[in-house]
Structure formats: C-alpha cells, structure tokens
Simulated assay, not measured.
Amino acid sequence: MAETRYTKDHEYIHIEGDVGVVGISDYAQQQLGDIVFVELPEVGRAITQGAEAAVVESVKAASEIYAPVAGEVIEINAALEGEPGAVNEDPLGRGWFLKLRIGDPAQLASLMSESEYEDFLKTIA
C-alpha cells in the first residue's frame, strides 16, 4: 500500500516506490473554495523541494502548489484542465496534480505522516 506524507503548506505525496503522486489535502481544497483553473508543469521538468510545481485558481484566490520533494515530473493529470473541480470533489484521488520520480528519498523524512498532519491541522483550526 502506498504511504502518504504531508507538508505544512497542505500538499500531499502518495509514495509508490520511487514515484510520488502530488496534490493538495482536503483541508486545502476546502480553504480555497471552488477551483476553477489548474496550471500544471511540463513533463520532464526537474523540480526542487519547496519550489512551485503547479498553480490553482479558485473563486477566492490563486495559490501555488509546492513540491513536497525534489524530482522529475513524469506525468500530469491532464484531466484537470477540463475538470478542475475534481480537486474539490476528490483531492486525494482523481484530483491529483502530478507524478514525480523522487530524486532524494531522504527528503520524505521531513514530511508529516497522516496522523502528524491531522495533529498539525488541530493547531491551526
């Protein structure tokens, strides 16, 4: 089963071997409101940890999505271009943004587990 880790900026990464599926948490999509546009990176782009990986625009605001770990973009969720609302409907499933080939697995240690993320959300609520 894939492990999921979280950032303090509310991105998640589902880890499947050396590939990570990146998106935003349910909390993040709730804060943004109705998502109307998603800008995704180019496949093949190298991204460093913490760098902007994508952009989402909602009826409330535009927000950058940061890479939880460094890696190379190997796939994007092109379906979001026609259906950005999938991020609101299923952020941890159909609403993923991109897949990264993880460049430095040691960076995963800097991210929160699901239970640590849930505890973190209690501190900001």
Results as ranks from 00 to 15, higher is better:
residue 38 V to R: 04
residue 10 H to V: 08
residue 63 S to P: 13
residue 86 A to K: 13
residue 23 G to N: 06
residue 79 A to F: 03
residue 108 L to A: 07
residue 10 H to E: 07
residue 104 D to L: 04
residue 85 G to S: 07
residue 103 G to I: 11
residue 100 L to C: 03
residue 62 A to M: 13
residue 87 V to G: 00
residue 82 G to V: 05
residue 64 E to A: 15
residue 13 I to N: 06
residue 56 V to R: 01
residue 81 E to A: 12
residue 78 A to F: 08
residue 98 L to N: 06
residue 24 I to T: 09
residue 31 Q to V: 13
residue 6 Y to K: 01
residue 16 E to H: 13
residue 49 Q to V: 13
residue 9 D to Q: 14
residue 25 S to V: 07
residue 37 F to C: 14
residue 30 Q to C: 04
residue 29 Q to N: 03
residue 27 Y to A: 12
residue 77 N to C: 08
residue 67 A to L: 09
residue 30 Q to L: 12
residue 104 D to F: 06
residue 73 V to Q: 01
residue 32 L to D: 02
residue 32 L to A: 06
residue 24 I to P: 15
residue 108 L to C: 11
residue 68 P to F: 03
residue 58 S to W: 02
residue 50 G to S: 07
residue 56 V to Q: 05
residue 73 V to F: 05
residue 87 V to K: 02
residue 43 V to T: 13
residue 15 I to F: 10
residue 54 A to D: 03
residue 12 Y to G: 11
residue 58 S to M: 02
residue 53 A to T: 13
residue 103 G to R: 12
residue 75 E to M: 09
residue 54 A to N: 05
residue 73 V to L: 05
residue 105 P to R: 09
residue 57 E to S: 04
residue 29 Q to G: 03
residue 88 N to K: 05
residue 43 V to W: 01
residue 63 S to N: 11
residue 79 A to T: 14
residue 72 E to K: 15
residue 57 E to R: 01
residue 80 L to W: 03
residue 26 D to H: 13
residue 102 I to W: 07
residue 19 V to D: 11
residue 84 P to L: 00
residue 100 L to T: 02
residue 96 W to S: 02
residue 71 G to Y: 10
residue 19 V to M: 12
residue 6 Y to E: 01
residue 66 Y to H: 14
residue 35 I to V: 15
residue 88 N to V: 11
residue 8 K to Y: 09
residue 43 V to L: 01
residue 38 V to L: 01
residue 46 A to N: 14
residue 12 Y to K: 05
residue 73 V to A: 05
residue 44 G to S: 07
residue 86 A to E: 03
residue 88 N to P: 02
residue 20 G to T: 10
residue 70 A to Y: 03
